[in-house]
Design a protein around this nucleic acid. Structure first.
Lengths: 81, 81
DNA sequence: GTACATTTGTTCGTATGTATA
DNA sequence: GTATACATACGAACAAATGTA
């Protein structure tokens, strides 16, 4: 259970930990292309972070080209095409 | 407690003010058991708050066991039983 | 059966304030 | 002063359930 958790007392910012964690799940194929990643509210609850922090993590995923976000809908794993 | 209005510049969060205000109305019998409390849209207009804020207030009432919500129908004051 | 309006449910977008390191 | 992080709050859009005409 220690895996896949956020350490609030880490020198690594929480939003970066969370982004890395989600990126791993995507790269491991745990979330398929064109499928949504968990919502901001869900991440907030699951990982015990503020919504802003969850958003920043997703921002990073988007900057890395792993996902794309549609307002009011969700954030989806990018396909190869 | 004043006037059944919301103070946006209060240190008390708006959603808590609104929840308390509605709870008072319920406890005062202004809304009878099994009858609906005002809809989210109505609260939004009446008190000049965002819908999400109105929803958070109703969430509190539900957590306090004062009401129960039925999707697509409304939120109803709980009876004694 | 269909169309519409109402109400709650969900999700992202943006901004502000507070606190801390 | 900057970056991180939490909480609050308003806005917008879409979806689902319900009830009615």
């Amino acid at each position: 259970m220690a895996e896949g958790e956020i350490r609030h007392n880490s020198p690594v910012p929480v939003y970066i930990q969370l982004a890395d964690l989600l990126a791993e799940q995507i790269n491991a194929g745990e979330i398929q292309p064109d499928y949504p990643i968990p919502s901001e509210a869900w991440l907030q609850q699951r990982y015990g972070v503020a919504r802003n922090t969850a958003r920043r993590a997703v921002d990073l995923l988007r900057e890395r080209g792993l996902v794309c976000t549609i307002g009011g809908r969700g954030t989806f794993v990018k396909g190869k095409g």
